[in-house]
Amino acid sequence: MLRYLGKRFLLILPTIFVPLIMVFLLLRLSPGDPAGMMLGDQATADQIAALREQLGLDRPLHVQFLIWLKGIVTLDLGQSIFFREPVMEIIPRYAGVTILLTLVALTLAVLIGVAMGVISALNRNNPIDRGVVTTAVLGISVPEFWFALLLIFLFSVTLRWFPVSGYTPPSAGLIAWGTTIFLPALALGVRQSALMTRMMRSSMLDVLDEPYITTARAQGLPERTVLGRYAMRTASIPVVTVAGLSAGYMLGGVVAIEIIFSLPGLGRLLVEAVARRDYPVVEGGVLTIALVLAVLNLLIDVLYAILDPRIRYK
């Protein structure tokens, strides 16, 4: 088990470093002077030179890389130009919303995907199955930010069940938090739940043809147990393995969703930092998302190993 997790951890490292290195190179290799762009038109030559020095942009590229790498490892990404405080003090204020939103969306997507997939598989080729399959194809094709707008129109503007926008932290009451997180999470999860529905359906259909399902039936176990324990146990494994990719996708979709619902999360911070040319915050945002993703993926790997003992002993 430990060896397996160690191996998974090594595989996750590129997920953290590849995007960060790209951001590093983008800043240094893009045309124009980043210090000048950060400070805007009114800045004096002295101010720009000072910032260049502060960011280390006056040194050779490989030295910059080592300094940058040290900053990453020690989680020190310097000062935000806009907030005038260390990046790593700003990020935690925004990361919580994003992580919660992603987790809720992922949970919703898995629940919807598994349930719909199983219902579809058990009704193979009848109208219910066809309805689910068609809905899933539509779901995969719906842009989540547009879906979010439709949800707002239907549930917030017309039916007034949920607030149009804004965020209540869970500490202020779980129900209040739930009403502000549900629609964003649903919108964020719609494409992934459709993907998982398709995956669960085909996985369940495969498993139902497996000999061990016939064995369970031949042992006299009731259909409820055969499907709920024997079939689900293996059929849900592929869904778990794609949950990591889904989480990655969602951490991207989160940007638009946070803007639409005015949630104070990392995605919104990132877009605002882009508009303000606040590069340290951009870098911090990318690093945080990469770290969240890495932790999520490791958790999913543990879950995978619990669900499938064959992995543990390989």
């Binding site: 990591g244 996708y249 991207g252 940007v255 951009v282």
Partner: peptide, 15 residues
């Protein structure tokens, strides 16, 4: 691996 796991929207935003 690094690119595929990471949200492309975030990378493009950074770009």
């Amino acid at each position: 691996d690094g690119i595929m796991a990471f949200p492309s929207i975030v990378l493009a935003t950074a770009a």
